[in-house]
Amino acid sequence: TTFEIRVGDLRITLHNADEEEIRWAEEALRRGIHADEILRTLEERRR
């Protein structure tokens, strides 16, 4: 599944994310964390 998060002009697309990952990514985007860093962190958490 694919889920797109939008916060203002910012956007990130997550693939195969669970609800916790989606909530975490949305909050991180709101705090101004760059999408590349969010994706990198999620990848590390999945390992």
Rank of each mutant, 00 (worst) to 15 (best):
T1Q: 12
T1F: 13
T1R: 12
T1A: 10
T1W: 10
T1C: 15
T1P: 13
T2R: 09
T2V: 12
T2W: 15
T2Y: 15
T2K: 07
T2M: 13
T2A: 15
F3V: 15
F3I: 15
F3K: 15
F3N: 15
F3Q: 15
F3S: 15
E4L: 04
E4V: 05
E4H: 03
E4G: 00
I5L: 05
I5T: 02
I5W: 01
I5Y: 01
I5D: 05
I5C: 14
I5V: 09
R6H: 09
R6M: 13
R6Q: 14
R6G: 05
R6L: 13
V7P: 00
V7K: 01
V7H: 04
V7R: 01
V7S: 03
V7E: 04
V7D: 04
V7G: 01
V7A: 02
G8M: 03
G8F: 02
G8L: 03
G8E: 04
G8N: 03
D9R: 04
D9E: 10
D9H: 10
D9W: 04
D9Q: 06
D9K: 06
D9A: 09
L10T: 11
L10K: 12
L10Q: 14
L10R: 09
L10E: 12
L10I: 12
L10G: 03
R11K: 13
R11E: 06
R11G: 07
R11H: 15
R11D: 03
R11T: 15
I12M: 09
I12C: 02
I12D: 01
I12F: 07
I12G: 00
I12T: 01
T13D: 02
T13R: 04
T13P: 03
T13I: 11
T13Q: 04
L14F: 05
L14E: 00
L14S: 00
L14H: 00
H15C: 05
H15E: 07
H15L: 05
N16H: 06
N16L: 05
N16G: 06
N16K: 04
N16I: 04
A17Y: 02
A17C: 03
A17S: 04
A17G: 03
A17T: 08
A17R: 03
A17P: 14
D18N: 12
E19A: 11
E19V: 12
E19L: 08
E19G: 08
E19N: 10
E19F: 09
E19R: 08
E19D: 12
E20G: 12
E20K: 10
E20W: 13
E20F: 10
E20I: 08
E20R: 08
E20A: 07
E20D: 10
E20P: 06
E21N: 02
E21C: 09
E21V: 05
E21H: 03
I22K: 05
I22S: 04
I22D: 00
I22L: 06
I22F: 05
I22P: 00
I22H: 03
I22N: 01
I22Y: 06
R23V: 08
R23M: 10
R23I: 10
R23C: 04
R23K: 12
W24Y: 14
W24G: 01
W24C: 02
A25R: 00
A25D: 00
E26T: 15
E26W: 15
E26L: 15
E26V: 15
E26M: 15
E27Y: 13
E27S: 14
E27F: 11
E27I: 09
E27A: 13
E27Q: 12
A28N: 06
A28T: 04
A28Y: 07
A28M: 11
A28V: 04
A28P: 00
A28C: 08
A28W: 14
L29A: 05
L29P: 00
L29S: 02
L29K: 00
L29F: 05
L29Y: 04
L29G: 02
R30W: 12
R30F: 11
R30K: 11
R30M: 11
R30P: 00
R30Y: 13
R30E: 04
R31E: 06
R31L: 09
R31G: 07
R31C: 07
R31V: 06
R31D: 07
R31I: 10
R31T: 08
R31Y: 12
G32N: 06
G32I: 01
G32F: 09
G32H: 05
G32K: 04
G32D: 03
G32E: 03
G32V: 01
G32L: 05
I33C: 07
I33A: 06
I33R: 09
I33S: 06
I33M: 14
I33G: 05
I33F: 12
I33L: 08
I33H: 06
H34S: 13
H34I: 08
H34K: 09
H34A: 09
H34P: 14
H34E: 12
H34D: 13
A35Y: 06
A35Q: 08
A35D: 03
A35L: 05
A35R: 05
A35M: 03
D36Y: 14
D36C: 15
D36R: 07
D36L: 13
D36K: 07
D36E: 13
D36I: 11
D36P: 10
E37C: 09
E37I: 11
E37H: 08
E37L: 10
E37G: 04
E37Y: 13
I38K: 00
I38Y: 01
I38G: 00
I38P: 00
I38S: 00
I38C: 00
L39H: 11
L39M: 09
L39C: 10
L39W: 08
L39F: 14
R40G: 05
R40Q: 09
R40F: 11
R40S: 09
R40M: 08
R40N: 09
R40L: 11
R40Y: 09
R40V: 08
T41S: 09
T41M: 10
T41P: 00
T41Y: 12
T41A: 13
T41L: 10
T41C: 07
T41N: 07
L42N: 00
L42S: 01
L42H: 02
L42I: 15
L42D: 00
L42F: 08
L42G: 00
L42T: 02
E43A: 14
E43K: 11
E43H: 12
E43Q: 11
E43T: 12
E43N: 13
E44F: 14
E44N: 11
E44R: 14
E44Q: 13
E44M: 15
R45Y: 10
R45C: 05
R45P: 01
R45D: 03
R45G: 06
R45E: 04
R46F: 05
R46M: 03
R46N: 04
R46Y: 05
R46W: 06
R46G: 03
R46A: 04
R46L: 04
R47K: 14
R47D: 07
R47C: 08
R47Y: 14
R47Q: 11
